[in-house]
Design a protein around this nucleic acid. Structure first.
Lengths: 165, 165
DNA sequence: CAGCCTTTGTTAGGAACCGTACGATCCGGT
DNA sequence: ACCGGATCGTACGGTTCCTAACAAAGGCTG
């Protein structure tokens, strides 16, 4: 699970290797730590909450989006889940085979496909999500409320900036 | 690229849908924003820096690790890059076919495989990385130095906490 | 030095993932 | 009504990514 090197050792190695170059190290560490943290968190949640559910990470995220928003068009779900439409097609096929999700008709546009949870899927999310949130809380346990809000706000600023560009 | 909903709309929908439950919303937004930001940043860097290089994101990360650390054993590279050994096998095969990377023998243990950049790979990283770093700086442009450091520090705390557990 | 346990990287199979191309459908102008 | 362009979800091909099973090599204990 944990790598051979600590984060501090990596930072030292980078300093030695790139010390001569004119780089923005603060940006570098902010960005690379976002990526590292994201991977580590995803791994943690997969190993704890999702381990025995038969759901993949992406499958869970898709279920979550449909749960929060209710019956939705596929393109919204794909955008919200952060995956492409093409990927969603495959994921939905898997979730449909588990009877967690069903595809329904758009009321007026016959090209579009809507997604909705089945009663089974609804029950699954109702059972799973509290545990998921407990593990989310575990992940940020070392940060007090103020730092959690600050973290979320900084990330939101990055997201909004990238969306605008 | 940008979803149909804004982050704020999502937060409202979650509030309506989950308002009744006893959840840690601050943890939830911190964690989900880490994941969203990570995806958005990876997309941005793929579209800008990596677009015309023939490198995938993971390929670049593997190259980066070998570049920083020098000749390394595969298991270290996999851990540092955040991928499994099995995945690394495939990625290395690709990078080897591009002549960016080569596999060498471990001095004493014949099971182990070492990875090193070729001169071509070395030159590629030297050319690519400054541009990569420029785009990293663009990503965090909206955050001042203090908030960048604070962001990196909070993420480091999360990473160290997860590593310990 | 023989037997067993551990550790190594690879392979195999399946899901996720993307860009691209496509057929189906919708819509605006005529 | 029709025809052009825009938009929809899906099929396809290729890569990434994982887990599980594996063979090869090392290391330990007797």
């Amino acid at each position: 699970m944990t790598g051979h090197h600590t984060l501090r050792q990596t930072e030292e190695a980078v300093g030695e290797r790139l010390g001569g170059l004119n780089l923005d190290f603060e940006a570098m560490w902010a960005v690379s730590n976002i990526y590292r943290a994201s991977s580590a968190i995803r791994n943690h949640l997969e190993q704890t909450v999702l381990r025995d559910t038969g759901l993949t990470w992406t499958g869970f995220v898709v279920m979550w989006v449909v749960w929060i928003w209710g019956e939705s068009e596929t393109r919204h779900v794909a955008a919200e889940a952060g995956i492409s439409k093409a990927t969603l097609t495959g994921v939905v096929r898997t979730l449909e085979s588990y009877r967690h999700l069903r595809r329904t008709q758009h009321p007026t546009d016959r090209r579009r496909v809507m997604l909705a949870l089945t009663p089974t899927g609804e029950r699954l999310m109702r059972e799973l999500f509290p545990e998921f949130n407990r593990q989310e809380a575990f992940v940020v346990k070392e940060l007090d409320g103020e730092r959690r809000r600050e973290l979320a706000a900084s990330l939101r600023a990055i997201l909004e900036h990238l969306e605008r560009s």
